[in-house]
Design a protein around this nucleic acid. Structure first.
Lengths: 198, 198
DNA sequence: TACTTCACATACCAACGGTATGTGAAAGGC
DNA sequence: GCCTTTCACATACCGTTGGTATGTGAAGTA
């Protein structure tokens, strides 16, 4: 190139970032199947050679994007939970943070709709477990051990609650009525409440 | 052909059935993206011309397969519910039937994993609403009107419960332990129980 | 300076979804 | 009976896609 763009490592990181950024934008806008590698590399102003130098292929690029998205959601959940001291408040705050974060269009499309189909459900689940699902499971485990929740197996509970929130987020993202969030939260918090020890 | 294969309408129906059958089998086994039209038409012993004569394209074939699968699940749910007289028993029996039916591999892959990604979530939801989701919503509405459930908006509740069952079915299909079904059902029926009027 | 490494760019390929056109048997009218 | 139309496909073909193999020039290294 004409101008020096920094050291080799810096340029490498720039290219990788550009691919992730444009990939995320296009995947979120048109869906995984609706965007081709040519569109991604053109938007990132590189060639397919660069993409295949950084990633193993289209599914691998998508996986990297998904990990980034799930990481952000997990951070939001953790931040909301850490702002509370009471373990029960941490659970409810984390769930509420997950619900609002997952309603964002790119999260919805990449994480909830295309994710399982592109990577397969088991792979998607392991990524989810590495992200926000781990927070949920750990919070539930802690509450059961502390006696706040009735003694019961945690994994089934975590899956039921996770699935309920995922579907709720998908529905909320499509329903313009902002009052729906309150209704969903009322119903969901009622479910959580029913799990408490008497 | 050498042997007469019946009237024109009969042959048409045979070809359509063969495409749906092989499409369903291959979509369930390899996923939507993992199977090509050439594989489907070869398995059905026809050509691509036949496929495009009966369907508008690959997504339309998948939609027809999905409608068939969802119809079977809806029938199983309706049959389980109709076998009970008490409305509350109808709800629980229907949910349990959905949970067991959705654990089947082809239902899981076609309806729960690939469905939303291939057809888009809103289209998938409208198909779901035409299938088993309608039974759930109507059962909940009836129970709220009858005062069995506490007065509350039904749509959010239906989505939460539907999402919980979907995720539970996906998890159960992957977890070999048959005891998990009991645990899931215990947790889920506890959720349902918490919705009753005091 | 000579050599090696690396971060891409270029050129190319098989396979895929989709389309346009051809074809021969069944249905319908006389 | 025969002619015409319709229909249920089959055949041949095309543009695009994800993926690969190879080339290249600047950045690092001795």
């Amino acid at each position: 190139m004409t101008a020096e763009t920094g050291s080799r490592a810096r340029q490498r990181e720039r290219t990788r970032r550009a691919l992730l950024r444009e990939g995320r934008r296009l995947f979120a806008e048109h869906g995984y199947a609706g965007v081709g590698l040519s569109g991604i590399v053109a938007a990132a102003d590189v060639t397919k050679g660069a993409l295949y130098h950084h990633f193993e292929g289209k599914p691998d690029l998508f996986r990297a994007v998904l990990e980034e998205v799930q990481g952000e959601v997990a951070d939001a959940v953790a931040a909301a939970a850490d702002a509370r001291r009471d373990p029960w408040d941490q659970l409810t705050a984390g769930c509420r943070a997950f619900l609002t974060a997952s309603t964002a269009p790119d999260v919805r499309r990449i994480m909830l709709v295309d994710g399982p189909a592109v990577l397969g459900w088991s792979t998607w689940r392991s990524l989810d477990e590495a992200g926000s699902a781990r927070h949920l499971r750990e919070a539930l485990t802690g509450l059961v051990r502390a006696g706040v929740l009735r003694p019961q197996p945690v994994p089934p509970l975590a899956h039921l609650l996770s699935g309920a929130m995922n579907e709720a987020a998908l529905w909320l993202a499509g329903s313009g009525d902002p009052g729906d969030l309150d209704d969903v939260w009322a119903a969901f918090s009622g479910m959580l409440e029913s799990l408490r020890s008497p």
